[in-house]
């Protein structure tokens, strides 16, 4: 159970800290010129960061211990990658991933 005495302090500090992270470069960029190397690194942010987010969350369950989340998730994710690549359609990607995962869950 969560201790409500520390709940709001944690939420508020998280809120302020997260806002500062989000605001940082957006606020100061007018007064700042980025080195060319940094500028060229920016374009790799979507590919690198989103994949770093999604791979562990597809493959690993974290209920206290980290463990393999199951073949149905891995296969469904690969199907979704294929659908995303071929169609570039968001609904089709999410829909096909969920349907394949549920289908395999019923079969396996």
């Amino acid at each position: 159970m969560v201790d409500m005495n520390t709940y709001w302090p944690i939420v508020l500090i998280m809120g302020v800290g997260t806002f500062v992270i989000r605001f940082s470069f957006i606020l100061i960029m007018d007064k700042l010129t980025l080195p060319d190397a940094v500028h060229r690194m920016l374009r790799f942010i979507p590919a690198a960061v989103l994949t770093a987010l999604l791979v562990p969350s597809v493959l690993l369950h974290k209920n206290g211990v980290t463990s393999f989340a199951g073949w149905e998730r891995l296969i469904a994710a690969l199907v979704a990658v294929l659908v995303a690549w071929k169609t570039k359609n968001i609904l089709a990607t999410i829909g096909s991933g969920m349907v394949v995962m549920w289908g395999l869950q019923a079969l396996l």
Partner: peptide, 12 residues
């Protein structure tokens, strides 16, 4: 599982 699927949909 829908959450990582949204990332797949935008990253690919």
């Amino acid at each position: 599982f829908a959450i990582p699927l949204t990332f797949i949909a935008v990253v690919v």
